[in-house]
């Protein structure tokens, strides 16, 4: 089965073509503000490299964030258009799961905890906590945005109770912001740039192994990014007019991270 995977929610434009979970060709492009220009040409180039054309694709996997608001919409819009035009199932995968998978591509014999943290400004990070072992991937804390301090507490609290093994922290914090992510104990650290080439292959894996169920038929139209933060204007409006739901006190959006 020919699988096409793409993600544009981080500074890495990640694309891969695979036969099942086996990557045939992949690209990780870190050209600043290049995502919108380069996504579709990259997809076509990789397919051609494999001797395939777009009609040969049988399954599309797309990273749905969280991450850059504007960025994530590029791949989601493109993937939805491709999947609906070709009548293909679409697998929406958390970008955090893909980043975690990129940091830990194999299946370790002893369990490892993987914490992907993507910078969300104002001392916050989009994050999730996964545990991976020979048995596969388990999501311990689902994707959300929190203060980095809160992520530290989650990790320590988990260590107090039942350790899921050593911690692997993978992040996109710039050198000047890395002070924020100190104090995660003995965690092994990797940067997003170091694991960039593994993001799209991780999407292939998740999609091909059925870790996330494919969306089929008319429902493909409803696939949308997982922003985890509401638009700032909506939050302010609800605060002002007192019609807030549970998210009413949440602070605003990151207002667009690099990567378009």
């Amino acid at each position: 089965m020919v699988v096409l995977a793409m993600d544009t929610a981080t500074e890495v434009l990640a694309v891969a073509v695979g036969r099942g979970e086996e990557p045939l060709a992949g690209a990780a492009v870190r050209v600043p503000r290049g995502h919108s220009r380069l996504l579709q040409p990259t997809v076509l180039d990789l397919l051609r490299m494999c001797g395939l054309n777009p009609r040969d694709v049988e399954l599309v996997a797309v990273g749905v964030g969280p991450g850059s608001y504007t960025g994530v919409r590029l791949a989601v819009s493109t993937a939805k258009a491709m999947a609906t035009a070709l009548g293909l199932p679409l697998v929406p995968v958390s970008t955090l799961r893909a980043v975690a998978g990129a940091a830990c591509p194999g299946r370790p014999s002893a369990s490892v905890r993987v914490l992907p943290l993507l910078f969300a400004r104002r001392g916050r990070a989009f994050g999730a906590l996964y545990e991976v072992s020979a048995a596969g991937w388990v999501c311990r804390i689902p994707p959300r945005v929190e203060a980095v301090e809160a992520w530290r507490e989650h990790v320590h609290a988990a260590e107090g109770a039942e350790s899921g093994g050593p911690l692997l922290l993978v992040h996109d914090f710039r050198p000047q912001d890395q002070g924020l992510i100190s104090g995660f104990g003995e965690a092994r650290r990797m940067t997003l740039a170091e694991v960039a080439g593994g993001i799209a292959p991780a999407l292939l894996q998740v999609a091909a192994r059925g870790e996330v169920a494919p969306v089929v038929g008319d429902a493909v139209h409803d696939v949308a990014p997982e922003y985890t933060l509401r638009a700032q204007a909506e939050v302010k409006w609800e605060e002002k007019d007192g019609m807030a739901g549970d998210g009413g006190r949440e602070s605003g959006g990151p207002g667009g991270k690099p990567g378009e």
Binding site: S36, L39, Q40, V43, L44, P54, R55, R73, L74, A75, S77, T78, A79, K80, A81, M82, A85, L86
Partner: peptide, 9 residues
């Protein structure tokens, strides 16, 4: 992005 996705497909 959607239009390019359609053109590509």
């Amino acid at each position: 992005s959607a239009a390019k996705g359609y053109a590509l497909a």
